[in-house]
Design a protein around this nucleic acid. Structure first.
Lengths: 234, 234
DNA sequence: CCAAAAGTGTTCCCTCTACACCCATGT
DNA sequence: ACATGGGTGTAGAGGGAACACTTTTGG
């Protein structure tokens, strides 16, 4: 840390409460789901809310979001990206507070059910999603829009699937994200053409008698390609 | 405002200094330029810095950024978008402070030279750009990356040109953004094919004897198209 | 043997790219 | 008349979209 002189430089400037809220998306039973919980602090205690927290003085926004996600899902190393800052002066009746919203994509198979229940959290599909507190509905809508846009150019879909997945699963995921049906032949062709899916010997027989081969995404190869300007366009 | 009960709800939570910095880009003499100024507060007073300010308790981040831009350029209604939040605990030796960076695109013909000079600000090309304080170099690099990506799908280029512009001017702008030469026939064809450029009767004769027709961008028509999912792809 | 999902190829069309010459005008 | 930048058309290649049938196997 620096010295007293520099500490004084910013003395008297207006400090503000800073929070972060997470739009946590998962993919389960062929549909996208959102993790929300019952807010415990007043005002609006008992209402449905995104999971979030105030940001402490000794942590970055990312640190705070990771702390929240760990607490509510038991998961670490989750894909997470900043959405935007919500800073309207009157956005929170509890007091002036800006919020940096982040969206997180998780493989719904992996989360810790115990943690979720312990904190009064629940997964909702978007059909049955209740009204959320404050500007959280806006955050969710914007996050969905951003995920849709982003999925067209970056392979973020794989974050929502387990390590091993089948092509039909992947297609259903993209259909859920884009909200429209895709041609199965063209989809498979396109995805395989990138050379980024590694076919495994194992089959998933839960979806059909014939069984579908498992694949995994080649993150290492993609990382290299991305540096040289590769666009994962779907 | 609400009542004392709710004010108390967040009592004791950690307040933090919040700032916003603006990556102000302009296009002049065929190259992109960045507006920076000599920082006046300690620590690091006298060093080159992005223009910015602390966020007051009674204003949103956008309000703060608009205030800064007005002060330094004399301009209002500027295109501006959030880049991201910089929140590393040690990013500022002056004290814990998070910063929401925003990039702004302005028509360099329009700004108020008096305002710029009065505040010790200057336009730099990226070739001659000096080192900036704190993490401002990162912010600039990320803003450029974002502008490049965004320009491929949204008509943000027009924000950097005057209301009236010629096709060759527009092409030079895109060449400056993408850092590569474009084919003039294909470029013209593509741009005109959208039906979003309105040809004026007037010519700009500053660049050649023959003169190039002025056009303006049809913002209204684009707004409608965008709602129905139109992608302005260049 | 049948139902149910997995897997496979081809044709057409449209868009992107590459490329070279005439036009208008001020000096 | 000439130099300078503005403006136009076309042919070939490649990628996206549309489309139907065979394969596998548990029950």
């Amino acid at each position: 840390m620096e010295n007293l002189k520099t500490q004084k430089a910013y003395k008297g400037q207006p400090k503000i409460l800073v929070a972060t809220d997470c739009i946590v998306l998962g993919f389960d039973e062929g549909v996208l789901k959102l993790l929300v919980f019952k807010r415990r602090v007043d005002p609006l205690a008992g209402e449905w809310s995104l999971i979030g927290s105030f940001v402490n003085e000794d942590e970055s926004i990312t640190d705070a979001a990771r702390r929240v996600l760990l607490k509510f899902t038991g998961l670490e190393d989750i894909f997470m990206e900043e959405l935007r800052t919500y800073s309207d002066v009157d956005r929170d009746p509890g007091g002036r507070c800006i919020c940096i919203a982040q969206y997180a994509l998780i493989s719904i198979a992996d989360y810790d059910r115990g943690q979720v229940e312990k904190h009064g959290a629940r997964w909702f599909t978007f059909d049955e999603l209740p009204n959320l507190v404050l500007d959280h509905n806006d955050m969710v809508a914007e996050a969905l829009k951003k995920v849709r846009e982003k999925a067209r150019h970056r392979p973020i879909g794989f974050e929502l699937l387990p390590e091993k997945f089948t092509i039909p699963q992947l297609q259903k995921l993209y259909e859920a994200i884009y909200q429209r049906l895709l041609d199965d032949r063209n989809f498979r062709k396109k995805l395989l053409s990138f050379g980024l899916l590694i076919k495994l010997d194992e089959k998933d027989r839960s979806g059909s008698k014939k069984g579908a081969f498992y694949y995994r995404f080649d993150h290492e190869k993609y990382a290299k390609l991305e540096k040289s300007g590769f666009d994962f366009e779907i």
